[in-house]
Design a protein around this nucleic acid. Structure first.
Lengths: 236, 236
DNA sequence: ATCTGTGAAAAGATTCACAGCC
DNA sequence: GGCTGTGAATCTTTTCACAGAT
């Protein structure tokens, strides 16, 4: 690491020592741990975790060893404790308030989604410019006009914004979001945003994912022949 | 690469020589090239491409050199030709038919989205089990019952499915999709799917992305101090 | 002068393999 | 027996740097 402050291309904005790719896996661990907790399993070995997620046991151990020693040799990891530790790493051990910006079809779907709280997020505001949507309620929140965003960020302590506006206005709206004091943007618009280094962006471009998928099906064995019994395996 | 056929953990299902991480960047290149094409720019240098997407020029050249020589020294890459080549790599130079499975809020949003065609995808079917949704139309397609999926896959040559069902039934529904002959699944359900090796899966878990974002805002400089003017930079 | 393509070097991520604990 | 944590080895990805094309 040589470029701690600007977040330029070479070093994709790594502040702490944990790489983005590791953080993603940590998320998957947490998801699976929550599943285990519901089933009442209180302890889990790196082997089981890896198998469920399509990773090697060594990978799991390396990832988890990033922050101290959590496992007990001969036993494994304590499901509840490990989950809590992961949450504290993500900062989801306390609830974060979130704004949805752009209330088109996607924005509405996100507003109606009822799984946020369980994951530590609460949608406390929805914002759009279209007069036809302003005032309407989706899920539990009513749509406000964009110029109310800065005030809402302050009064509700909004940390994150979900950007679901058309590509053409995404950069401009992202600017407004940053100026309002939001710390991170989940970007559904198919453009690369330019934001101050203090603001984090995580892109979610459906077209990119579909192209990824299309590429995979394109390069795989074109057609499954009957009798060529394929083994099941967890997704990447 | 040592494990060409099973797609086990260690080798994340690499059939061709291009790594998933490279493929993702190729998608971003295409997106930006389409933008340039609209603006009428006919040629682009690795430097510009990299700058726009937050990558080094060398990275861009390496990625593009994966498939023959496309650039002209002293000039750059031809926007249109490069875009076409990328599309042919993704298999989006011809239109692929897609099914949406699970017509909740998210599924509906996806059905109404009007950007598919431009990217080479056409949603030709929607499937759900809930009697209340069957027969209803969203966007241009009417919802059918799940047991019609296999027939639809055959008659419409459906290659890909978008899975947008609740986590609890995702694995089971994924099985139906695979048995129907679909080659790839874009998985919005927050579970790791187990599918035959012949079927590709690309996961899109919103909670995972939000946790990623939350982690970044958690570990960044907690509050931007005025006067500490942050430079703008493209998102990762 | 500008820009690509590409070996070689550097950096990063994953797997191996085993000492030590339960 | 089973399991973790971790250095060392291996494999992958990125960056450097420059020859050669326009």
């Amino acid at each position: 690491m040589k470029d701690e402050h600007t977040g330029r291309p070479g070093s994709p904005t790594r502040r702490s020592g944990i790489s983005p790719i590791t953080v993603r896996r940590l998320s998957l661990y947490l998801r699976y741990l929550e599943e285990l907790a519901e089933k009442g399993q209180s302890t889990v070995a790196s082997r089981q975790l890896g198998q469920a997620l399509g990773l090697t046991a060594a990978q799991v151990r390396k990832d988890l060893a990033y922050f101290g020693q959590f496992g007990r040799p001969g036993v494994g990891y304590h499901v509840g404790k490990l989950a809590n530790h992961l949450r504290s790493i993500f900062g989801t051990d306390r609830i974060s308030n979130v704004a949805v910006v752009g209330v088109g079809d996607l924005g509405r779907a996100l507003l109606r989604y009822r799984g946020w709280l369980k994951k530590g997020f609460r949608v406390v505001g929805a914002f759009d410019t279209a007069p036809s949507t302003i005032g309407k309620k989706f899920g539990k929140v009513a749509v406000q006009s964009m110029d109310q965003l800065p005030a809402a960020v302050k009064t509700h302590q909004i940390r994150l914004a979900i950007l679901a506006v058309p590509a053409g206005v995404a950069q401009e709206v992202a600017g407004q979001i940053c100026r309002a004091g939001v710390q991170g943007i989940l970007n559904f618009a198919p453009v690369t945003l330019n934001v101050p280094a203090a603001v984090a962006v995580v892109p979610v471009d459906l077209a990119v994912q579909l192209e990824q998928l299309s590429y995979l099906t394109n390069t795989r064995a074109p057609r499954r022949r009957p009798g060529n019994r394929a083994k099941r395996r967890p997704q990447p």
